[in-house]
Amino acid sequence: MELAIFAGLAAVAAVSGVLVVIQRHAVYSALFLIITMGALAGLYILLEAHFVWAVQVLVYAGAIMVLFLFVIMLLNLPREDVPWRPDDFRRILIGGALAVVLVGELVLALLFQAGEQAPALPASPGFGTTETIGRLLFTEFLFPFEVTSVILLVAIVGAMVLAKKQLL
């Protein structure tokens, strides 16, 4: 049962991921990306990561992708009908080759080094709940947590400054 759910979600994620990359218009890419993220959120439930699931839906599929769509519509881009450039083919070839090699290396690394892990232990009580994560964030990871707030502040200021009309 679990395996079937995994297979379904993984297939959705993979297919919509492919579609993200090959869409000609950014809006479709964004919509497929939302689907991918939703599928990933489902996988998080399978992995008993409840808090992460919530955040994935709220922040990623919600906030971030809304921001993307917002910008796409703000720019009101035409369909990507720019002519094929002579170096596009070469770039796609090189980029694709590099990506294949990269993923090959990743898989090798994951399978031969991480793949020999012992079978999963049963999840401990409270695994993946908001309470546990909150406890961790405010004890063990307090300092990175605070730094994160600084990063967000800087991002807010930076985004405002950059997007102002008078810039450049």
Binding site: A14, D88, I92, L98, A99, V103
Partner: peptide, 26 residues
């Protein structure tokens, strides 16, 4: 390993997209 392979595949898609697409938003 199933999760990891899915993860690797998605990562691969990301890399291909970054390396080949010309639309900055994509």
């Amino acid at each position: 390993s199933a999760y990891l392979i899915l993860s690797a595949f998605l990562f691969f898609l990301g890399v291909v997209g970054v390396a080949t697409r010309r639309n900055a938003l994509i």
